[in-house]
Design a protein around this nucleic acid. Structure first.
Length: 333
DNA sequence: AATGTGTGCAACCGCCCTACC
DNA sequence: GGGTAGGGCGGTTGCACACAT
C-alpha cells in the first residue's frame, strides 16, 4: 500500500507557473517566509498549487541570487570532479556552486556536460586509431559512467591536454577544508602510503584532488548525519576552542556546518571519510590497472554483473546506488 | 512550407528520511 | 515504538523551441 499523496492532485494546478503565481509566491515568502510548512503555504497565499510544487518553484527559480545557464569552465570542473567522486548527488554538488541549484546542475550534466566530456573521449579514441568503437562499454549506470570519465581524464592528463589538472592555479576555489588539505599533501599520503596511482606519477595533485573532494563531501554528509543525531548542536567540540561556526545555506538548505577549530575547518566528531575514500581509491586503481576481475562477463566481453568483490559503487544493483558511503563504512570496519 | 528529430529545461513523480505526535 | 506528515532529493517526463530534411 502506497502512501497518501501530499495534496489533492485533482484540485491543484500543474504545469508551468504564470508570472502572477510567481509574483504571489515570491511576495509572500519575502514578507512572511515559508512558515516552515510548504504544504500549507499555497492555501495561505491563495494558490491552487501543491506545496511541493511551491517549494520547488521557490528553490529552483524564484529564490534570490539564482544563476541560470552560462556555466563556467571552473564550474564544469567542480561538477565533473564531484560527479566522479560521489556520483549523482546533485544537492551536494550544488552546495559547492553558489547560486546553482541541484536541478540546474542535474539538467546541465545530463544534457550538456556529460556529452561534452564523453564525446571528447570518443573523438580522441577515433583520432588515435586505437580502440574500436564497440569496445567502449555501454553506459549502464552512474558508476560505469564515472569510471569512463575517470579513465578519460587519465588519458587526458597523460597527454597534457587537460590543463586544469596540470595547473594548480586553475583549480576551483573550493571550500577551505579542501584547500587546506591540498596544501597538506604529505599529511594525506601519511594516511595511506600504500596507495599508488598508476597514472599519477607526473601529475600528482589530481588524484589527491579526487580524494579530497570525496573526503570533503563525505565529511559534509557525516556532518549532516551528526547534526541530526546531535540535534544540530554545532558546539559539540569538547577539546579546544570553537572559533566560528559557518552555516551557509545551499539550494536545499542543508549545507553542512563546518566549525573552524584552531584555524582549520573540522567536523565535530572524528570521521572516516578519508579511509573510505582510500579503500575506494585502491579498488578503483586496481581496476584501472587491469587487476580487477569482472564477473558476469559474457563471451563478447559485455559486463552484465558487477566487479568481483565490489558492491555499492560498482554494482549494477541500483538498490545500492544511494548507499555507497554506507558500504564503505562497513568496508572500513 | 511541412514534418521529423534533437535539445534544453521546468516541473513532476515517487521514494526515503526524519521530526513529531 | 509505531504511524503519519512534511521535506529532501534523484530520476523522469513533457513541452517549447531550434534545426534538419
Amino acid at each position: 500500500m502506497g502512501r497518501a499523496p501530499c495534496c489533492d492532485k485533482a484540485n491543484v494546478k500543474r504545469g508551468p507557473w504564470s508570472p502572477e503565481e510567481d509574483a504571489k509566491l515570491k511576495a509572500y515568502i519575502e514578507n512572511y517566509g515559508t512558515g516552515g510548512n510548504w504544504i500549507a503555504l499555497p492555501q495561505k497565499i491563495g494558490l491552487k498549487r501543491c506545496g511541493k510544487s511551491c517549494r520547488l518553484r521557490w528553490l529552483n527559480y524564484l529564490r534570490p541570487n539564482i544563476k541560470h545557464g552560462g556555466f563556467t569552465e571552473e564550474e564544469d570542473n567542480i561538477i565533473l570532479n564531484l560527479y566522479i567522486s560521489i556520483g549523482s548527488r546533485w544537492s551536494i554538488i550544488a552546495a559547492q556552486l553558489p547560486g546553482r541549484t541541484d536541478n540546474d546542475i542535474k539538467n546541465y550534466w545530463n544534457t550538456k556536460l556529460k556529452k561534452k566530456l564523453l564525446g571528447r573521449r570518443k573523438q580522441q579514441q577515433g583520432g588515435l586509431g586505437g580502440s574500436k568503437e564497440e569496445e567502449i562499454p555501454t553506459l549502464s549506470n552512474s558508476a560505469l559512467e564515472r569510471l569512463q570519465l575517470r579513465m578519460q581524464l587519465q588519458s587526458q592528463q597523460q597527454s597534457s591536454t587537460f590543463s586544469f589538472f596540470n595547473n594548480q592555479t586553475l583549480w576551483p576555489k573550493l571550500h577551505p577544508f579542501i584547500q587546506d588539505k591540498l596544501m597538506k599533501q604529505d599529511e594525506v599520503e601519511s594516511i595511506d602510503p600504500q596507495i599508488q596511482y598508476p597514472f599519477n606519477n607526473h601529475h600528482h595533485h589530481s588524484t589527491n584532488f579526487f580524494q579530497h573532494t570525496a573526503s570533503f563531501v563525505q565529511h559534509k554528509n557525516d556532518d549532516n548525519n551528526n547534526n541530526n543525531n546531535n540535534n544540530n548542536n554545532n558546539n559539540s567540540i569538547s577539546n579546544g576552542h570553537v572559533e566560528e561556526v559557518e552555516n551557509s545555506e545551499s539550494s536545499n538548505g542543508n549545507m553542512g556546518d563546518f566549525i573552524e577549530f584552531s584555524g582549520n575547518m573540522v567536523k565535530p566528531e572524528g570521521y572516516t571519510g578519508m579511509e573510505r575514500v582510500s579503500s575506494f581509491q585502491a579498488e578503483l586503481d586496481q581496476l584501472l590497472a587491469g587487476e580487477g576481475k569482472r564477473v558476469g562477463e559474457d563471451e563478447d566481453g559485455q559486463v552484465g554483473g558487477e566487479f568481483e568483490g565490489m558492491s555499492g559503487w560498482w554494482s549494477n544493483d541500483q538498490s545500492n546506488s544511494t548507499s555507497n558511503w554506507d558500504y564503505y563504512e562497513d568496508y572500513a570496519n
